[in-house]
C-alpha cells in the first residue's frame, strides 16, 4: 500500500506539472479545479480503473466522466500519461486543429468517455452508462467527477434521484469539494451545504474523505464497490493544490499562469 501511494503521489506530481505546462502553453484555461482534482483522477487512472489505452473502446472497460469539463487539462494529462495519446500532444491544448479542446470532446480524444463542459450533465450520462452495464450484465464500473459549484445545477439532482431509483450500485460520483467557484466561495455564491446529507437524502451511500489522501481515496472506492447503492464520495480538496500561490485563490479558477509563474509552479511540483 505504501508503495502504491508513493507511486500515485509521484504520478500526481507529474500530472500537475503537465497541467501547468499545458495551460502555460495555451495561455488560457482552468488551473484551480484541475489541480484540486488531480489526486482523484490519478488514483482512478493509475490504480482503480480497468482501461486499455490500446483499445480505448473496449466494451468491458470502466468509464470515467469528467462532468466538470473545465478541468479538461487534468484528464488530458492522465490520459496521455496512461498512453491513450502521445504526451507531446498536450501542448496543443486549446489550439486550432488540436484534438484537445478547451472542454473534453469524446469524438476527438481517445479515452474521453463523454463530451462535457456545460455543467450538470455528466452525472446523467454516467448513469446511462451504468444502466447500460446493468442491462448487458457487464461488471464495469462508472466513475464521474463533479465540481462543488456544479451541484447548483438542478439536473444533478434529477440524476441523483434516478440513479438511486434504478439501483445503480456500479456508479460512483466524486465531488471535488474545493469550496470555490468563479464568483467566489461556494458558500457565498450559492450555498450547497449540507452536501453529504443531500446525497444521503437522495438515497446514495456517502463517504467523506480528504481528496488529496490516496489511502482515503482508494478506501472509498473499495467501499463503493460493495455499497449496494450508488456512492457519492465527498472529497474535501484545495483549489490550486500543489502550487503555493494558487492554493485557495479563486482568481486562479480560470486564468493560466505565465512566464515566471510557470517556472515557480513547476519548481514547486518537482519531485
Amino acid at each position: 500500500m505504501e508503495e502504491t501511494v508513493k507511486m500515485l503521489e509521484e504520478k500526481a506530481r507529474q500530472i500537475r506539472r503537465h497541467v501547468i505546462s499545458m495551460l502555460g502553453a495555451a495561455g488560457s484555461g482552468h488551473p484551480g479545479g484541475s489541480l484540486s482534482a488531480a489526486d482523484i483522477v490519478t488514483a482512478l487512472y493509475f490504480k482503480v480503473m480497468r482501461v486499455d489505452a490500446q483499445n480505448s473502446r473496449w466494451p468491458d472497460r470502466d468509464r470515467f466522466v469528467l462532468s466538470k469539463g473545465h478541468a479538461a487539462p487534468v484528464l488530458y494529462a492522465a490520459l496521455a500519461e496512461k498512453g491513450f495519446f502521445p504526451l507531446d500532444e498536450l501542448n496543443g491544448l486549446r489550439k486550432l486543429g488540436s484534438p484537445l479542446q478547451g472542454h473534453p470532446d469524446m469524438r476527438k480524444v481517445p479515452g474521453v468517455e463523454m463530451s462535457t463542459g456545460s455543467l450538470g450533465q455528466g452525472l446523467s450520462a454516467a448513469s446511462g452508462m451504468a444502466l447500460a452495464g446493468k442491462l448487458d450484465g457487464k461488471d464495469y464500473r462508472v466513475y464521474v467527477l463533479l465540481g462543488d459549484g456544479e451541484l447548483q445545477e438542478g439536473q444533478v439532482w434529477e440524476a441523483a434521484m434516478a440513479a438511486s431509483h434504478y439501483g445503480l450500485d456500479n456508479l460512483t460520483a466524486f465531488i471535488d469539494y474545493n469550496g470555490f467557484q468563479i464568483d467566489g466561495p461556494v458558500e457565498e455564491v450559492m450555498s450547497i451545504d449540507p452536501v453529504a446529507e443531500k446525497w444521503r437524502a437522495f438515497g446514495w451511500h456517502v463517504i467523506s474523505i480528504d481528496g488529496h489522501d490516496f489511502g482515503q481515496i482508494l478506501k472509498a472506492v473499495e467501499e463503493a464497490g460493495t455499497a449496494g447503492r450508488p456512492t457519492a464520495v465527498v472529497a474535501k480538496t484545495v483549489k490550486g493544490k500543489g502550487v503555493s500561490f494558487m492554493e485557495n485563490q479563486v482568481d486562479w479558477h480560470g486564468v493560466a499562469p505565465k512566464g515566471e509563474q510557470i517556472d515557480q509552479a513547476l519548481a514547486e511540483l518537482a519531485g
Binding site: 468509464r63 466522466v65 469524446m106 468517455e113 463523454m114 450533465q121 452525472l123 446523467s124 450520462a125 454516467a126 448513469s127 446511462g128 452508462m129 451504468a130 444502466l131 447500460a132 452495464g133 448487458d136 439536473q155 440524476a159 434516478a162
Partner: peptide, 9 residues
C-alpha cells in the same frame, strides 16, 4: 442525459 450515456455504451 441518461439516453446519451446509454447511447455511448
Amino acid at each position: 442525459g441518461t439516453a446519451a450515456g446509454l447511447a455511448a455504451a
